[in-house]
């Protein structure tokens, strides 16, 4: 189709121009995409580059481990029919070499970030999974490190998620529907 539109003697120059335009465009997108929000130039160019970057999933800031973040852990509490609470830690003990490790961690990170979106479904899943405990209510929890964990704390055999360092936040609570 290109050959039919453009005369043959212009193939080379036209291709050269198209290639040059693409490299300039893609280079611009690579640089503008992760540029800080406060940059006025980047803000001005974002409406132009965002659709392209979104399509190829390149709208990323490249802020690896910045910030490092604190220790957090997802837990859930099953309250049975006699009022006893059972705590479960789905991500605890996941082996780093386990192929599903990162996917599982990402799943629970999503749940912690958006309990209003994923919480009810997860609670229903746990109600079924823990049916042997006769669950009445399930609470989704997040334990978050609030205090710095330092080398002497490690020497003392403590963990960043111990109660003296971390607080527990309830993300979502829901009753289990009767079977």
């Amino acid at each position: 189709m290109f050959a039919s539109i453009v005369p043959e003697r212009w193939h080379g120059p036209v291709m050269y121009v198209l290639m040059s335009v693409f490299v300039a465009w893609h280079s611009l997108c690579l640089i503008v995409g992760p540029a800080p929000q406060g940059s006025m130039i980047a803000q001005a160019l974002r409406p132009l580059v965002n659709p392209y970057l979104g399509f190829i999933s390149l709208n990323v800031k490249w802020g690896f481990f910045a910030p490092v973040g604190d220790a957090t852990e997802f837990r859930y509490l099953v309250i049975d029919n006699v009022g006893k609470a059972h705590t479960f830690r789905p991500t605890s003990g996941l082996a780093w070499y386990h192929p599903g490790n990162l996917w599982t961690i990402d799943r629970y990170r999503a749940i912690v970030q958006r309990p209003d979106v994923y919480g009810d479904r997860l609670i229903a899943e746990y109600c079924r999974k823990r049916i042997a405990l006769k669950p009445v209510k399930i609470k989704l929890l997040q334990v978050v490190q609030e205090k710095a964990f330092l080398p002497w704390d490690h020497f003392a055999g403590k963990n960043p998620l111990d109660p003296e360092f971390a607080t527990t936040e309830t993300l979502r609570t829901k009753k289990c529907s009767r079977p």
Binding site: L30, D70, A71, T72, F149, P160
Partner: peptide, 30 residues
């Protein structure tokens, strides 16, 4: 570009300036 912005973000964080970011990485649950 990836390396540049990765470094730039790190330089905006206290842990990396103070030189103890790697300690904190290995104290996270992940």
């Amino acid at each position: 570009v990836l390396f540049f912005f990765s470094a730039a973000h790190k330089l905006g964080e206290k842990d990396w300036w103070q030189g103890d970011a790697i300690w904190h990485v290995f104290t996270t649950s992940e």
